Simulated scan of single mutants.
Amino acid sequence: MSQITYVRGDATAPSGEGVKVIAHVCNDTGGWGRGFVLALSRRWPEPEKAYRAWHRDRAGNDFALGAVQLVEVGHHLWVANMIGQHGIRTGGKGAPVRYEAIDTALDTLAGKALELGASVHMPRIGCGLAGGTWSRVEPLTARRLAARRVPVTVYDHGEDTSRQGRGEPRDRP
């Protein structure tokens, strides 16, 4: 079984050769303006434009928790907008993260990555503004991607990566 590799760096500048998919978690409200998405938008306008159109036209498409939208941003480079967050605020109803939706999205992403022959690169998805914990997301990533031999690299921006999955840094650069 493949494993998850942890590195210090910027998930919007994935390392290595070949086709790459940058995966991240989006909310189901159409909001795009805080967290990791800002780093994506600084590099490419396409993921935000595609996400907003996907949300706007949701009555006629698959926009919902667990859905994945692949957006090509360069030669052999894609961004996976994954709907894994219900709402945008932590409050009386708990954190917006939806682990089941992330699990479904990662399963879909695995199939798409295998079709493309791609590796997957991500921050610690669902652990920033979504309010999740990596101890819950890491096993989903391992089961849905690494177990299917999809190479996965998790980027900690400025974090000490020696903790390898035990820490809970925010899901943003």
Rank of each mutant, 00 (worst) to 15 (best):
L109F: 12
R52C: 08
T12H: 11
H24T: 02
G18P: 14
K20Y: 09
P169S: 05
D28G: 02
G111L: 07
H24K: 07
K49D: 15
V68C: 05
V120F: 06
G126C: 12
Y6F: 15
E100P: 12
P151I: 06
N61A: 05
L77F: 12
D160Q: 03
K112Q: 15
T161N: 02
D57V: 08
D156Y: 13
R8S: 14
D10H: 10
R170M: 10
Q3E: 15
L140T: 01
R52T: 07
V154T: 09
A59T: 01
I83F: 08
G126D: 09
E168Q: 14
D28M: 03
R148G: 01
T141W: 00
K20L: 05
T161H: 04
T141Q: 00
D103P: 06
D160F: 06
E115C: 08
G30N: 03
V19Y: 00
V68K: 03
S162L: 11
W44C: 04
H75R: 15
E115H: 04
D28N: 06
T90I: 15
A39N: 15
D107K: 10
R89D: 08
W134Y: 14
G31T: 13
V68L: 08
R149S: 11
V137Q: 11
Y6Q: 05
G66N: 13
R166N: 10
V7G: 00
A59F: 05
R58P: 02
Y99H: 14
R124P: 13
P173Y: 02
L116Y: 07
I88Q: 09
V154D: 05
G30W: 09
I88S: 02
I4C: 07
G33T: 13
A142K: 10
G94N: 12
N61Y: 02
H55M: 12
P14C: 04
I102D: 04
G165L: 14
R172P: 00
I22G: 04
V19L: 05
V19Q: 04
G16K: 07
A13F: 02
A50Y: 01
N61I: 12
C127V: 05
V25L: 09
A11N: 03
L114E: 02
V120E: 01
T161E: 14
S2C: 11
I4S: 01
P14M: 10
R42I: 00
A39K: 08
G33Q: 03
R136Y: 06
